[in-house]
């Protein structure tokens, strides 16, 4: 590489040849930026579509499981309902038996009451005759204990009837409870079945969505490949343009700087940034300005060049030392 003076390098940078090269590099960078953006956009769409496909598939499977759960619950409830129906049949049979028993107890109770009333009437008639007829008195003596026995029997029959009636009512309430429970469960079975059907249909819809997303993702995968190819081409083009700089301007061309050896210096190298950056180097670098770097440190420490101060008319230092003080209070040091 040819070592140059600062003014020689300025001439190179201002030449038409360099301007043409710079325009080619900027065009290549513009193409790279556009390719990069296109690649990132299509890659993002691909990732997003792939994620949507996975998400739809997962939701479809979840829905399928849920539909199965509802179907299982419906089957369990149906079994419960059948069991309750069987129980209710048994309870109805028990009720019918109890109803007959209660009816018999009622008849016994009425018959006992009737016998008591008949005997009371007979005793009342005998009491009317007892003063005049000794036989009536004897009969009364015989019937009085019989009346007490019949009254006891009637009381027992009444108690028995009441007990049987309570049991009959209890059995009827049990039948009604079982019917009500069975009805409620039967209704919930159909509801659960309908819900299972609905969720299964949603699951099928989600499986179709997942498949559509997968197809779209596959199309996008091909688009990603194309964009990746374009991006690689753009990067190759930039490398080609940078290589051409080495040949055309006899310099070292890296990705972000051109380097030119400094004439009469073994240590320093001129560097020309191909971009502007105010934050990531020790100084604010501007594209195509000339800076100087040490060969060992490289762009770790960049120094500005090309400033040649004219100190001939600079009187600031003289002024500072030679001009009188503005004021000097007593005792000042």
């Amino acid at each position: 590489m040819k070592a140059r003076r600062h003014d020689e390098l300025q001439q190179v940078l201002q030449s038409a040849d360099f301007q043409q090269w710079w325009n080619a590099l900027r065009a290549a960078h513009d193409r790279l930026a556009a390719s990069q953006k296109a690649y990132e956009d299509v890659q993002e769409q691909h990732n997003l579509t792939g994620f949507r496909a996975e998400n739809a598939q997962k939701r479809a499977v979840d829905h399928l499981y849920r539909a199965g759960e509802y179907e299982d619950r419906a089957a369990t409830r149906l079994a419960e309902s059948n069991s309750l129906d069987n129980q209710s049949f048994e309870s109805v049979a028990a009720f019918e038996t109890q109803r007959v028993t209660t009816s018999d107890a009622w008849s016994n109770h009425l018959a006992a009451e009737h016998r008591v009333e008949s005997l009371r009437s007979q005793i009342a008639a005998l009491e009317a005759e007892a003063d005049s007829k000794p036989a009536a008195r004897n009969e009364l003596k015989r019937l009085q204990p019989e009346l007490r026995r019949l009254e006891t029997e009637a009381e027992t029959a009444r108690h028995d009837y009441e007990k049987q009636a309570v049991e009959k009512n209890r059995l009827w309430r049990e039948v009604e409870r079982l019917w009500e429970a069975s009805l409620q469960i039967s209704l919930s079975v159909s509801e659960l079945r309908r819900k299972a059907v609905r969720i299964r249909k949603e699951s099928e819809k989600l499986f179709r969505e997942a498949e559509a997303h997968r197809q779209k993702a596959e199309e996008l995968r091909k688009a990603v490949k194309t964009a990746e190819h374009d991006l690689n081409d753009a990067e190759i083009e930039i490398r080609r343009v940078l290589r051409s700089a080495s040949e055309r301007f006899d310099c070292l061309a890296e990705e972000e700087f051109l380097y030119f050896p400094v004439k009469d210096s073994q240590r320093m190298v001129y560097c020309v940034p191909l971009f502007s950056d105010s934050a990531h180097y020790n100084i604010e670098v501007r594209a195509l300005n000339i800076y100087e770097v040490d060969r060992q440190r490289g762009v770790d420490f960049i120094e500005p060049v090309g400033r040649e101060p004219d100190d001939s008319a600079d009187t600031r230092i003289d002024d500072f030392f030679l001009k009188e003080r503005k004021s000097a209070p007593a005792g000042a040091t």
Binding site: N282, I283, E303, P304, R307, P309, D314, R316, F320
Partner: peptide, 22 residues
């Protein structure tokens, strides 16, 4: 402003650097 960069300034503008020190 890093010391190294101030040194770069001092190498080019000696009077300017003196003014900064003053």
């Amino acid at each position: 402003l890093s010391n190294e960069n101030l040194h770069s300034f001092a190498k080019v503008y000696k009077n300017g650097f003196t003014m900064v020190v003053i």
